[in-house]
Simulated scan of single mutants.
Amino acid sequence: MILNHLMGLYTHPKQEWHTIEKNHEALKSSMSHLLLIALIPAVCSYIATAHIGWNPGAGEPLFLTSQSAMYMSMGMYFGLIAGVFGLAYLAYWMGKTFDAKPDFTQALELATYTATPLFMVGFAALYPVLWFIMVVGLVGLTYSVYLLYTGVPIIMNIPEEKGFIYASSVVTSGLVLLVALMASSVILWSMGFGPMLQ
């Protein structure tokens, strides 16, 4: 069932990771979760930028044209999915270094469920005030990192000491991936694909 681990990851994460590890789902199930949960930040950002208006802290709220907001939201949606796949591939690739033998589905489960709190932060876009988004985003990022550190030893079936180093490597790779996605956005904006204000 889609989203069947969502509440468990928030209420009892370690037990939920054990449940995920015991009942490895098909690739289709992880993909369904990812495709659905990635809609949250994309749709909420579209509503906020096209209809509510972003409040940068001073002056009037900024609005994007509906077409521009749609393009930005679609780009965000596919960028988030690509980011999770990139993180899953890096976790899969690094597994051999830490004596783990994951298949790609396990790595995708780890990346997808770890990214879930970050995607849920997308609801905060419906109150588009910069300081609020930053605070909620920081909370979501912190919880995602916590899920990663608790999930790696369980999903990859390795000791906690190795799991800590493995998770630290995945966090570092994820930050590099995030910077690469942000740089891609800047390059695309400079080529004329940037947002259009109303």
Rank of each mutant, 00 (worst) to 15 (best):
I2V: 15
L3D: 09
N4Q: 15
H5A: 07
H5S: 08
L6T: 15
L6I: 15
M7G: 13
K14T: 15
T19H: 12
E21Q: 15
E21W: 05
K22S: 12
H24I: 14
E25K: 06
A26W: 03
A26K: 10
L27H: 06
K28V: 15
S29F: 05
S29V: 13
S32H: 09
H33C: 10
L35E: 09
I37P: 00
A38E: 05
I40N: 00
P41D: 03
Y46A: 07
Y46P: 07
I47L: 14
I47C: 04
I47Q: 04
T49I: 10
I52C: 02
G53L: 05
P56A: 11
G57N: 10
G57C: 11
A58R: 08
G59L: 06
E60M: 14
F63N: 05
S66V: 12
Q67A: 15
M70E: 10
Y71I: 14
Y77E: 02
L80S: 11
L80P: 08
L80A: 13
I81P: 01
G83N: 11
F85Q: 02
F85G: 05
G86E: 07
L87C: 11
L87Y: 07
Y89Q: 02
Y89E: 03
L90D: 00
A91N: 00
W93S: 10
W93N: 04
G95T: 00
T97I: 15
F98V: 06
F98E: 05
F98A: 07
D99H: 13
A100D: 01
K101F: 09
P102W: 08
P102L: 14
F104I: 09
F104W: 01
T105L: 04
Q106C: 06
L108A: 06
L110F: 01
A111T: 01
A111G: 04
A111M: 03
T112I: 06
T114V: 12
M120G: 07
M120S: 09
F123G: 03
F123L: 10
A124M: 07
Y127N: 09
P128E: 04
F132A: 12
F132P: 05
I133E: 09
I133T: 08
V136Y: 03
V136L: 14
L141E: 11
L141D: 02
T142D: 10
T142W: 05
Y143N: 13
Y143S: 09
V145R: 06
Y146M: 15
Y146E: 07
L148C: 08
Y149C: 10
V152A: 01
N157M: 08
E160T: 12
E160C: 04
E161L: 11
E161K: 14
K162T: 12
G163Y: 00
G163T: 06
I165S: 11
Y166V: 06
A167Y: 00
S168M: 13
T172W: 11
S173F: 13
G174H: 02
G174R: 00
G174K: 00
V179H: 03
V179A: 07
A180P: 05
A180M: 15
A183G: 08
W189Y: 11
W189F: 14
S190I: 09
S190Q: 14
S190F: 04
M191N: 11
F193Y: 13
F193P: 04
G194R: 03
M196N: 12
M196K: 13
L197A: 13
